[in-house]
Nucleic acid binder design. Structure first.
Lengths: 156, 156
DNA sequence: AGGCGAGGGTTTGTTTTTCCAACCCACAGG
DNA sequence: CCTGTGGGTTGGAAAAACAAACCCTCGCCT
């Protein structure tokens, strides 16, 4: 099962193997917002309960969420984001900004985020080295794995 | 079909409705890398051909890709990213960085990106207003739609 | 003591998707 | 004529998603 397939090795694919299934990123969104209870997740996301249960198991196994009892008797649980999960929030913010711009029209955003600096968050992806914004035009890819160049598989 | 469900209105969900299906973001990755031909996509992504064809149709319809002939006789096509598609690349870069860190161990990255400033790209999401990095701790959400607070649906 | 409701799921049966392999078409080269 | 490449489509089996119902524990009300 590892010889007949052979996609490009890539951390985007690896990331999506963890959070790429339907609803997973919405679970992260809700948990980051503070809505970590099962029925809140069901209502706010609109996912079937069984699918949601499967996603939660997966995200806990992958170390993005933890499940903790917020009370005993009757036992009730809550999901919380780990550091790995919280670190996805900036990615979600840029995805949200993209959705605001290119899926909705840029108008009537359903959610506005406030940054601790006091202003409304407009997330931009920048280069840590120079501080400049990151655009497609400024990027050059360097695959590190032999056989995987940037213009298709080397041979064949 | 709009009364019995009622998930939180959100641009993350809207964005995922466009690029959230399996393989869609990998298609974007390959096209941004310059691999826009059908069989390159099949090989580099590892997706079934029929699923890939469906994703390409969807992404073209959604305005993220265009399909253009790069030669007549025999007619051969190539997919290219529109501005909307290219604008997703920074998001992919932050997702890749997250995958590097939290899925792989931070070592042996399969792909390194060079920024036009000359150094290796380490993407960070920043606030356009203050320039500071965006972390979960610095964010406060303000839903704009009545009935959708940040702590679960208002009532019930 | 009986009934109701919340919270957090699991079970069951049906509908969609995914997956895989095979096939098709146009043309180019030998 | 036969083979190979590019870009798909088709058909049937396997896997997911979906919806509704069900289960269990407990707290509260009467």
């Amino acid at each position: 099962m590892a010889a007949t397939k052979d996609p490009r090795p890539c951390s985007i694919a690896d990331a999506l193997a963890v959070v790429g299934e339907k609803y997973s990123l919405l679970v992260l969104r809700e948990v980051c917002l503070g809505n970590g209870r099962f029925d809140q997740l069901v209502r706010n996301i609109g996912a079937p309960r069984d699918v949601l249960a499967a996603r939660l198991r997966r995200l806990v196994d992958a170390g993005l969420l933890t499940k903790r009892a917020y009370q005993e008797r009757p036992q009730r649980f809550e999901y919380r984001a780990t550091r790995a999960g919280l670190d996805l929030e900036p990615v979600l913010m840029s995805l949200m900004a993209w959705g605001d711009r290119h899926v909705r029209g840029g108008d009537d955003r359903p959610m506005v985020i406030e940054h601790s600096c006091g202003s409304e968050l407009l997330p931009v992806v920048t280069c840590a080295a120079c501080g400049g914004e990151v655009h497609h035009e400024d990027l050059t890819a360097h695959p590190q794995v032999p056989g995987w160049t940037v213009k298709g598989p080397t041979a064949a």
